[in-house]
Design a protein around this nucleic acid. Sequence first.
DNA 1: TTTACCATGTAAGGCGTTACATGATTTA
DNA 2: TAAATCATGTAACGCCTTACATGGTAAA
Lengths: 175, 175
Amino acid sequence: MSLRHAVLGLLADRPASGYDLMKRFETSLSHAWPATQSQVYGELGKLAKAGMLEVAAEGPRGRKEYAITDEGRAELRQWLTEAPPETVRRSDALLRVFFLDHLTPLEAVAYLTGEAERAAHRHRHLEEVNDRIEWDDDALSVNGRLAMEYGLRFTAMREEWARWAAEQISASGGR
Amino acid sequence: MSLRHAVLGLLADRPASGYDLMKRFETSLSHAWPATQSQVYGELGKLAKAGMLEVAAEGPRGRKEYAITDEGRAELRQWLTEAPPETVRRSDALLRVFFLDHLTPLEAVAYLTGEAERAAHRHRHLEEVNDRIEWDDDALSVNGRLAMEYGLRFTAMREEWARWAAEQISASGGR
DNA sequence: TTTACCATGTAAGGCGTTACATGATTTA
DNA sequence: TAAATCATGTAACGCCTTACATGGTAAA
């Protein structure tokens, strides 16, 4: 149920239209909480109905600019501070690991090497983005840097694990 | 659409009933691909209808034991080797990071410290399980060890990141 | 005989994805 | 005036969660 909080969080900075929000979902939030246009417009309607948002202004082409209400801010704060233990995660990649014995050792090693390369690729991509961004000292930049660092550490860990795992298979499968 | 592959993967080892599978979902797969009883029985029906499974035996209490067919094995292999890039991940925890500036620095640090502690707790839990299990040299154990190592590395990374992030906030918020 | 465990299913409702549908305004 | 961009919505379908519903068998 976090789409709701993603929308509230974005609107807590400044008012925006559904169209504006989509751009932010596609950039900053794309790796944390992706959302489609369908979902965003739907959620805006629900949140407005629930009194957590209001239409602050209407513009050309039917543009509706939404602003967060006090009620919405309260909900956002409550979510942030109450910190319910994160929901269980599904991992396609980890699931495969459990079934690697249904492949030949060679195939399994190829899969794990591929995983390592995908992680490495993603890591390099993040580094490039990181180098290009000019981080300020403002609050948004501080948060952005934290998220970036998480991504960098995650992809690095992932690559190292996959290379290690490939070696394990090579070692036990080579007997 | 990986529930299907999780079921096929489990049945590729040996035939089992929906009830049997549920136990395996709750233990080994619970952190990779959780599934409910509702889902499992539903998926078994679909897979049987699609010819990827067959009812190999019927037992007391209406027990139906499913076995994977050649078609099912082909599907499993194809999924394992074709390795479509993993689906995007949603992370409740990472999403919060983007909105930490809507809390006071003290509250944000408290949140991150909590995250670190949750990760540390999970890490210790995995270590205990790891110590208790007697790993063999068979295929299942090899896979299980790979998954375990992933969990250990992931939780360790997560704790370190959260402690680092808390320090960043302390440093920039303390000005 | 009661309790625990084995065993399978259906229904309702929410979330997420993809595709469809429509049109106004700005820019080249 | 044609193309790009802005802008909002609906519909269908599948997956996931929660709750409900039912009953047989084995062990204490």
